[in-house]
Design a binder for these strands. Structure first.
Lengths: 108, 108
DNA sequence: GACGGGTGTAAGTATATTATTACACCCGCA
DNA sequence: TGCGGGTGTAATAATATACTTACACCCGTC
């Protein structure tokens, strides 16, 4: 794991709002609108937080049809365990990150 | 540990720049100006990062007099191991933020 | 006293993150 | 057709974080 990935993963979980979301999901999967009500935030904002949590694998989502016929986006907690030590960090720092080369490919 | 403390701790380490600092310190303690040169950032910026790292206990600093008589601020790596699971988070969320705990370390 | 090499911080700027508002659209039902 | 309850996203505002610049001051030495 390189330093950007590790940073993104830790940053995803290092947010009181997102911790609250994860804690709420511990009780079982919930669809987005219901989850928004429970944690007391707007759907739009929740989507932003869910995107970060999902990108780092903390939650999974699935769009399903309810018995009433309406589509429900269920979000469920994914099992995880992250351990951070100086070795974790040193390894990440040592791992070569693919050079991004912002548009500049000329040799000189 | 409440959610604000956990968040601050994780946020402190969830930064590529600060990971680089920690990795550099693995080789032994270094004084601030030298560390700034090694990680390639300004002293002022480094101070900001060190403040966050020290606030969450990842590094310790000590101002000492060098043999030449000039004051040197040494910064050293503090041992730590952080494990994050859904239980860690749920506990933090459940902990009332008014509670304050002392004797904090990262051995858990 | 003018360097060179340190510490320490205030103030301003740039950028990233978080949060709000508003919209388009789908489905079942009275 | 007009709700009520969903999904999904764009545009914008507010706020937090990261970074730069500039300064004051200390100590040895040439």
């Amino acid at each position: 794991m390189n330093v950007e990935q590790l940073s993104a993963t830790l940053a995803a979980v290092a947010s009181p709002q997102r911790m609250l979301i994860l804690a709420e999901l511990q009780g079982g999967r919930v669809h987005v609108s219901e989850l928004a009500r429970r944690v007391g935030m707007s759907r739009a904002l929740l989507y932003m937080h869910l995107a970060k949590l999902e990108a780092s694998g903390f939650v999974t989502t699935s769009l399903e049809l309810s018995p009433e016929g309406t589509a429900l986006k269920h979000v469920a907690l994914a099992p995880f365990s992250i351990t951070v030590t100086i070795d974790t960090i040193a390894d990440a720092v040592a791992t070569a990150t693919v050079n991004k080369q912002k548009g500049e490919n000329h040799e000189f």
